[in-house]
């Protein structure tokens, strides 16, 4: 990532430059990129490599595949399965509901009061993931929560099958609370890219509202929709704060298992397991974000 300096700084002058700068000046300017390059190497590249790399060493520093092999452990596999399941459910439900909200906003004035409110509220709630989100849901549907007690008065016991809020299923509702707003933020621009002329062309040619959506709307929006869905998936997959505050016993999802491996390093000498888990997460994130980049490229065709 420090490659910028070794590139050919002087050979391609900026478009506005009258003549190519002398090579010496080019190297000097290249030095100006060094601080940023060095910073990114120390605080982004190095931690990532260390995180993934520690998985290949044991506590004494010898190269081992034991930790990576631990990824095949039934408990670890189960945890990855749980995390993927949680991410899939919250991203699909979040994407569908979020897309409906975007649809409801089509045709409203971009600078109008309704849109400004929805924009600001979505921005806040999409960033709301974390400890505070857990407090909110404990206050509302915790064992002594406001809604829990209201429903109990009405004779409905949401915890008749046991208290699920502090376990894996309890994460679904809080996660949806930041997934739906994130979908609104990421998908709304795509929906706005639908040109009114396309609708006009459709009706001029005798098409119906149904044919507009099946022949034009959905095919054009599909890449953006699935792109946003992948972003939501990645978002849920890497979320940590809410789960950390809500679940104090057990580690049903991978980020919590990493917490466990990190904090138990003295006891069990399993700090390097955190590295192997991190490797597993990085691989899944790379696949998801790679697919996202491909879909974005396809989606951008219609947004010129």
């Amino acid at each position: 990532m420090s490659a910028p300096v070794s590139g050919s700084p002087a050979s391609v002058p900026a478009p506005g430059n009258r003549t190519a700068m002398p090579a010496r000046r080019g190297w000097l300017a290249g030095l100006g990129l060094l601080p940023f390059g060095a910073y990114v190497v120390i605080f982004l590249a190095l931690p990532t490599l260390l995180a993934v790399g520690t998985g290949f060493f044991d506590a004494d520093g010898a190269v081992t595949l034991d930790n990576v092999a631990a990824l095949g452990d039934p408990v670890v596999l189960q945890t990855f399965g749980n995390t993927l399941w949680l991410s899939l459910i919250t991203s699909v439900v979040g994407a569908v509901i979020g897309a409906l909200v975007c649809y409801a906003l089509v045709g409203t004035k971009p600078a109008g009061a309704l849109r400004s409110f929805v924009d600001a509220a979505s921005g806040v709630l999409a960033q709301f993931a974390g400890v505070m989100l857990a407090f909110a849901f404990i206050a509302v549907i915790g064992a002594q929560g406001v809604v829990t007690l209201l429903l109990a008065d009405a004779g409905i016991d949401i915890y008749s099958g046991g208290i699920w809020l502090y376990d894996l299923p309890g994460l679904i509702l809080p996660y949806l609370y930041f997934q739906i707003p994130l979908m609104v933020i990421t998908f709304l621009p795509a929906l706005e890219g639908l040109k009114p002329q396309w609708a006009e062309a459709n009706s001029t040619l005798g098409g119906s509202a149904l044919s507009f959506w099946t022949r034009i709307g959905i095919p054009v929006l599909a890449p953006s929709f699935f792109g946003s869905l992948l972003l939501l998936f990645a978002n849920a997959f890497s979320a940590y704060g809410t789960a950390a505050a809500l679940i104090s016993q057990g580690s049903p999802i991978v980020p919590l298992q990493i917490r466990g491996a990190l904090s138990s390093e003295v006891l069990l000498g399993r700090a390097n397991l955190a590295g192997a888990l991190a490797l597993g997460m990085i691989v899944i994130m790379a696949i998801v974000m790679g697919a996202y980049a491909l879909l974005q490229r396809r989606a951008s065709r219609w947004q010129r």
Binding site: L46, T54, S238, P255, R259, G275, A278, M281, I282
Partner: peptide
Amino acid sequence: ISIPAIVLVVGLAPI
């Protein structure tokens, strides 16, 4: 955006 904070923190700990 693509590197979860929980992954970065594993490598940040020794740093």
